[in-house]
Nucleic acid binder design. Structure first.
Lengths: 356, 356
DNA sequence: CTGAAAGCGCTTACAG
DNA sequence: CTGAAAGCGCTTACAG
């Protein structure tokens, strides 16, 4: 009543092959391979040698089924959406940092993309139920995000890129939007600007609030009246930045400065200003958000903020690994959230004094 | 001698829970869930209902171990390298097309990133041996690529993005570099250009050959002597394009036109030309390679070639699925290679007549 | 149409 | 230090 071998053609060398080749039991092979202490050094040597020559690597399904772990961490990202298409090199940089840190801890990274047409919650539920991964990094975290409750309940260790009001003690890292807005606005005020506009992405409510509030607070702390007309919301893309440019031009009086809180907007803004005969840095001071390959070539050089995506990825990986270690222990520590600092890089887009 | 449950905390509902809840055997539960024909419709209904309410999804490891398949397709990409950082939205677009086609065939897509510091061959070998996926898409295919032999030997179905001289009958799709060069050069000749430079990526030998040969052939077919001094090799990035600009400027006589066979080069070239007081389209005709978000904003609009990344991803998925179906059947068809056409989009960067 | 049972490839507590 | 054996969660040929 032996079930037929379904995978005959693709059969690769298994632990039994190793054992019979070496004339020892599969248990010993397994122990040697998994660095158990109680193995004769010579036996271990032979096993490792045989694994190398026979090309043996443990079948992950067998291993996972038995041990309950997959040694795999998943990074969940949205594919195909406008945001994703534009966030492009952000994720590739992040992946690199995640990857290098995780592999040092014997974890593999897999990226799990869900289409923007799909329900992110349903997708995540499937991933969780299938037990594909030991831990997860979620991105595009929403202000209210049911995925956080799902993962907490399922007791899957995870770390979130982005703050949320959902949940309470999960690990997260978010970019320092307050810091960017505060630093940017204070810098412009310091250079004598009083009419300072701000360009915000229209898509993410949480980020929008954070930036808006900080912007207003910094102005008022400096005795400048908040003018809601100077808050411009646009899509998080070059196109959005172009729209920000149009909005500026349409104002009865052009602000002397603008701060953008989305990386790609600067491209469209520069283009719109140039089309209109305005020169960034001469006619209006511009401070951008994140320095990236595309903005590095803007002329005049854009003053903006820098972060190491690789380091951010590494920090996310560390946060997740800490959660996983913590999960096992008796007295759980609440996982801390963390604000990721960004460093101002001075360009010439806001260096000149502008008076009107 | 029962092994202790290691995964107590994270235990989720399994097939046994379903069976005991419904008062039937696990075999019947499995059959109902897997759409076997020989199940009482009412039983099936109850099972599906219970799966929904209890949140049951089959554990992938159990399933894989038994069936020998994972229902997962892997896309292998390099993370962290210069190429990857710049290829950015290319992969996100591709993923979207792969994803949507694969999910229609009940496959999940996972992205398997390897660090540029890692040996791609060793990485692939591990993936293969662990039996993580049922099929693979490999990218950044080299002219001579040992990965192809590895996968062929291991009998893992795969499709390659990019041509190779390695292997013979595997599925692959490559962009139509000949077509782009032929079309681009002929177009420029048609507009009266005789001194036409070409900017090629310095990194990929195969692509370099293909483009170089086509460039030369088209020129000679049109009675124009090939001048090796007009072939400029540079890194596949904005920086590289900037260097191409410098090389042009350094020539004793500026060519009247240039064709770039890498998408990002146009950005750097525009910048370098502008810095030097030259206007693309007025002082030198420029034809770019692939239209992408970053080049869409160049002024004057860049004449370049367009492709749908989503469609390309879908085609790669189809090619892989055909291979997988084929693998089982008795008389194997050789999997065909395919050249992916790109469509010229007219801009103003090469519309004006330039005489010197 | 359904149940009982084998077995996929591993890891590991236990006995020696 | 090693072997024999149980069992992780499934799928499926077989018997009824």
């Amino acid at each position: 009543m032996k079930a037929p071998r379904m995978t005959y053609e693709r059969r690769s060398v298994g632990i039994k092959d190793m054992a019979s080749q070496l004339g020892i039991s599969i248990g010993t092979v397994s122990r040697a391979l998994n660095d158990r202490p109680d193995v004769n050094p010579e036996t271990r040597r032979q096993v490792l040698e045989a694994a190398r020559t026979m090309g043996y690597v443990a079948n992950q399904s067998g291993r996972s089924l038995r041990s309950g772990t997959t040694n795999t961490i998943g990074l969940i990202i949205e594919s195909g959406s406008e945001t994703a298409t534009n966030s492009d090199n952000f994720f590739l940089g992040l992946m690199d940092g995640l990857q290098s840190t995780l592999s040092r801890h014997q974890y593999d990274l897999v990226i799990l993309p869900y289409s923007f047409e799909e329900d992110p919650f349903a997708y995540l539920r499937r991933i969780v139920a299938r037990r594909l991964v030991d831990g997860l990094i979620i991105t595009a975290t929403k202000r209210v995000d049911p995925r956080i409750d799902l993962l907490t309940q399922a007791r899957i260790p995870f770390a979130a890129l982005g703050r949320s009001t959902t949940g309470g003690s999960h690990a997260w890292i978010d970019l320092d939007f307050e810091g960017v807005v505060r630093h940017g606005v204070e810098r412009l005020i310091g250079k004598g600007h009083r009419r300072i506009a701000i360009g915000l992405p229209a898509n993410d409510i949480n980020l929008g609030y954070v930036c808006h509030d900080t912007y207003r607070a910094v102005l008022e702390q400096n005795g400048i009246a908040f003018d809601p007309g100077l808050v411009i919301r646009a899509r998080p893309s070059e196109q959005g930045g172009y729209g920000v440019g149009s909005a500026l031009i349409a104002m009865t009086e052009l602000p002397t400065a603008i701060l953008l809180v989305q990386d790609l907007m600067a491209l469209g803004l520069y283009r719109r200003l140039t089309e209109h005969g305005l020169v960034p840095g001469r006619d209006i001071a511009v401070v951008g958000f994140r320095e990236m390959p595309q903005t590095r070539f803007l002329s005049p050089h854009l003053t903006s903020f820098q972060l190491s995506l690789r380091d951010l990825g590494a920090a996310l990986a560390e946060a997740l690994l800490a959660t996983m270690k913590n999960q096992g222990s008796a007295n759980r520590q609440p996982a801390p959230g963390r604000i990721w600092p960004m460093e101002l890089i001075e360009g010439e887009s806001d260096s000149r004094l502008i008076t009107r």
